[in-house]
Design a protein around this nucleic acid. Structure first.
Lengths: 110, 110
DNA sequence: TTATATACCTAATTCACTTATGTATTAATC
DNA sequence: GATTAATACATAAGTGAATTAGGTATATAA
């Protein structure tokens, strides 16, 4: 696992991008997808995930749809139009930050 | 300027690596060096810088030497042996994190 | 002489996270 | 058939690294 300190500030970007790439997803599904994509290196904790999803929804970037599967509740999240346009911004902001860090730390990142 | 959220957790790594590459430096000098290396994209605030330096010193990673230049005080920081061995760890940890983020966000970082 | 740059510092506040806990259903194992 | 693990949601208390906002003082440029 990675130092959780580094994750700070990147969670929103992860959630938005994963939802952009995959479409409609529910919370638990997101944790599994991120775990898979990162080969087990990035494990989202529920205490971070759910508040983050709620905030993105409150900010109008995500919309929800609650679905019953048998007796179990699933809350599906998907990007709003506002969310869709923000993803690109956030991702390129992150890439730009990485490039800058590469210069400051004088390391090759590829 | 970058979203300051992204900086969280990376400040210690920056300070250690810049001190490793440059040798003995004082606080203000570090801010100028980082500004220069990042082409003005990364501006360290004093409220973040000085507490971070003090913490690294308290943790035994940095040692200090106070020098008077005329009537002005300069506090020089340099890596201790413990600090030197930690730099490599921190930098490779950061690189590993970036690689993982690249996979999760499905972006090319070079 | 007045603003800007240099040079240090800390205290109050913010906020995204961790840790801990709670509830409940479904599937696997013993 | 009972217990554990996986699925699925949620919140509350605490942490800690940052921001914001202040303070002091010297040196230089306008």
């Amino acid at each position: 696992m990675h130092s959780p300190e580094l994750l700070k500030g990147t969670l929103q970007t992860i959630l938005l991008k994963v939802l952009k790439d995959h479409g409609r997803m529910y919370g638990y599904e997101i944790t599994q997808r991120v775990k898979e994509l990162s080969h087990g290196h990035l494990l989202l904790t529920e205490g971070a995930l759910y508040p983050a999803l709620h905030k993105l929804e409150a900010d109008g970037l995500l919309q929800t749809e609650t679905v019953m599967t048998g007796k179990r509740v699933r809350k599906y999240y998907s990007l709003t139009n506002e969310g869709k346009s923000l993803v690109k911004e956030r991702v390129s902001e992150f890439i730009e930050f990485i490039r800058t860090m590469g210069k400051v730390l004088q390391v090759q990142l590829n």
